[in-house]
Design a protein around this nucleic acid. Structure first.
Ligand code: MN
Ligand code: MN
Ligand code: ZN
Ligand code: ZN
Lengths: 135, 135
DNA sequence: TATAAATTTGTAATGATTACAAAGTTGTAA
DNA sequence: TTACAACTTTGTAATCATTACAAATTTATA
């Protein structure tokens, strides 16, 4: 479990003013690596922070993404998911149980010839199917 | 330009009753490889088919996807795009001009070790950045 | 032709996300 | 401390893509 003090420094180091709400949202993402939705983040935190607004969660997550400390996962077309693991990795979603699994990408995968002339900012690899338990 | 007769056969071969609307939607996708949205498909076709309903476009595209003759591209989180090219390829979206480019994936890319035990149905590779023109 | 099945259509509902402005908080300078 | 500006949070309303639904139309079958 990440401590408040550490998160405070981490946010500051990335140009983010560490308000209480922002710290709590980041800690939640840091401690829950199951790629939660806005709704699940909100529902979890509003128990502790009764005044919390869902708009704040949206604003905070957008800010975190702009500052580069979280990834937005759009493996599902009808809702975004969020990830404090900003390493270059892929996501697998099981169509049966809904769980989203991380997997490593080869070191310099996707060094596509045709894209020599393109400048690449983001890379997303999404797979869907059945996980070992559900298969 | 694909002829109506050919599309008619193609749809039948995939268990799809070739109604006039379905043929026109498929032909549009087959002839426009720029990954159009529901709205652009609808706006283009309703000029020719005044009775066309956007619901029909949605229904038709969902059916095509279920039958495996088109891909749904969710590179953008706020709208789906559609592709009659069902070969295994990746998509690059330019953040400047918005254009979506196709690119080849290595033959058996993404043969990830960790995923040996998983059964993979779909694979999506999305990149974002600047295209050569906009860079 | 008559009847059933499939398809299309228009409208209403859904639901995630965004816009917006008021309220609250924090930092700073006098 | 006080005053003011900047920043953050909050609640509500709007947006907008997509889906639900049932009536109307078309097509298939007997
Ligand atoms: Mn992840
Ligand atoms: Mn494509
Ligand atoms: Zn599963
Ligand atoms: Zn461009």
């Amino acid at each position: 479990m990440r401590t408040i003090e550490k998160t405070d420094e981490y946010l500051k180091a990335h140009g983010i003013m560490p308000s209480y709400q922002r710290i709590r949202v980041f800690d939640y993402l840091h401690n829950n690596r199951n790629h939660p939705t806005v709704d699940s983040i909100y529902k979890e935190l509003v128990g502790d922070i009764p005044s919390l607004s869902k708009t704040t969660v949206y604003n905070t997550l957008r800010l975190f993404n702009e500052k580069g400390i979280i990834l937005i996962i759009n493996i599902e077309d009808n809702e975004s998911r969020f990830d404090a693991d900003i390493s270059n990795h892929g996501h697998f979603k099981c169509k049966e149980c809904g769980e989203i699994f991380d997997f490593d990408l080869g070191k310099d995968d996707l060094h596509i010839l045709k894209l020599e002339e393109f400048s690449i900012d983001e890379q997303h690899v999404y797979l869907k199917g059945r996980c070992p338990k559900c298969k």
